[in-house]
Simulated assay, not measured.
Amino acid sequence: MNILFLCTGNSCRSILAEATFNALAPAGLRAMSAGSRPAGHVHPRSLALLQRKGLMQEGLCSKSQDALPLAPDVVITVCAAAAGEACPVYPGPVVRAHWGVEDPAGATGSDDEIDAAFESAYRLLRVRIEALLALPLEEMVHDRAAFGAALARIGEQGR
């Protein structure tokens, strides 16, 4: 199963989700990330956070949703609707869910405050990814409506 984490710039939230998912997921599950308007680089604070957490950074890059190597089975948008951010759309017959997460790239303040925004985004994504991985995925892939509903409930966690 291929899961796409999709956001606008693909430099922070979706990158953190991709790396976290791939570190936690069993064989047969893979995450990718992309953006509707990719920044063209991974935010240095995202890379620093992943390094602190001991998560792989190799192969992570900011890319367009049109440049994916595989077709996704599941698309999870991670843009924060509360911030007025327009979520990208992914066409095709996939299971979709929205997990709004504030964009840490927009954080201001001291270095510690900005790092805290990245840490907060990471923690929220990790809790949701762990909940996704706890689902009976082998059963859910056969019921797209139930799978989508379960992913939507997960997206409400931590709000």
Score class of each variant (00 low, 15 high):
Ser33Gly: 07
Ile3Val: 15
Leu70Gly: 00
Ile15Met: 15
Ser110Gly: 13
Pro91Ala: 12
Ala131Asn: 12
His43Ala: 13
Gly28Thr: 00
Arg123Val: 13
Gly109Gln: 09
Ala152Tyr: 01
Ala23Asp: 14
Ala131Gln: 14
Leu24Gln: 02
Val127Cys: 04
Gly84Phe: 10
Ser33Ile: 03
Pro26His: 04
Val42His: 04
Arg159Gln: 12
Thr108Leu: 09
Asp103Phe: 13
Ser11Arg: 06
Val89Leu: 02
Pro44His: 06
Gly54Asp: 05
Ser62Phe: 00
Pro44Gly: 06
Leu68Gly: 12
Pro93His: 13
Lys53Met: 11
Thr20Tyr: 00
Ala97Cys: 05
Leu60Ala: 02
Asp111Thr: 07
Thr20Cys: 15
Ala19Gln: 02
Lys53Asp: 01
Pro91Leu: 08
Phe118Tyr: 15
Arg153His: 05
His142Gly: 14
Gln157Ala: 06
Arg96Trp: 01
Val78Ile: 05
Pro69Phe: 12
Ala83Ser: 14
Val95Asp: 00
Ala97Glu: 00
Ala48Gly: 12
Gly35Tyr: 04
Glu130Trp: 01
Leu137Asn: 11
Glu130Met: 06
Arg13Tyr: 04
Pro93Phe: 06
Ile154Thr: 07
Gly106Ile: 03
Gly9Val: 01
Pro136Arg: 05
Ala134Pro: 05
Gly106Cys: 12
Met140Val: 04
Gln57Ala: 12
Ala134Val: 04
Leu29Glu: 11
Gly92Gln: 08
Val101Met: 02
Ala39His: 04
Glu156Gln: 14
Glu130Pro: 02
Ala39Trp: 02
His41Lys: 13
Pro72Trp: 01
Phe5Gly: 09
Glu18Arg: 08
Asp112His: 09
Pro44Ala: 13
Ile15Lys: 09
Gly35Leu: 00
Leu137Gly: 11
Ser33Cys: 05
Glu139Gln: 14
Gly40Asn: 08
Ala31Met: 07
Arg159Pro: 07
Glu138Ile: 06
Ala105Glu: 05
Ser11Trp: 02
Val75Met: 00
Pro136Val: 01
Ala39Leu: 09
Asp112Ser: 14
Tyr90Val: 09
Val94Asn: 01
Gln51Arg: 15
Pro44Phe: 11
Glu18Pro: 06
Ala146Gln: 14
Glu18Ile: 10
Leu6Lys: 06
Pro93Met: 10
Phe21Glu: 11
Gly92Thr: 09
Thr20Arg: 12
Gln57Asp: 06
Gly109Glu: 10
Met140Ser: 06
Asp66Leu: 14
Ser11Ile: 09
Arg126Asn: 09
Arg37Thr: 04
Gly84Glu: 06
Leu50Cys: 11
Pro26Tyr: 00
Pro91Asp: 11
Arg30Asn: 08
Cys7Val: 03
Glu130Ile: 06
Gln57Arg: 13
Asp73Arg: 04
Leu24Ile: 00
Gly109Ser: 10
Ala105Leu: 03
Asp143Val: 10
Val75Phe: 03
Gly106Lys: 06
Ala48Asp: 13
Asp112Lys: 12
His142Cys: 11
Arg153Trp: 03
Ala80Ile: 09
Gly35Cys: 07
Glu58Asp: 15
Ala116Asp: 15
Ala19Ser: 15
Ala149Glu: 14
Ala86Glu: 11
Ser120Arg: 15
Glu138Cys: 05
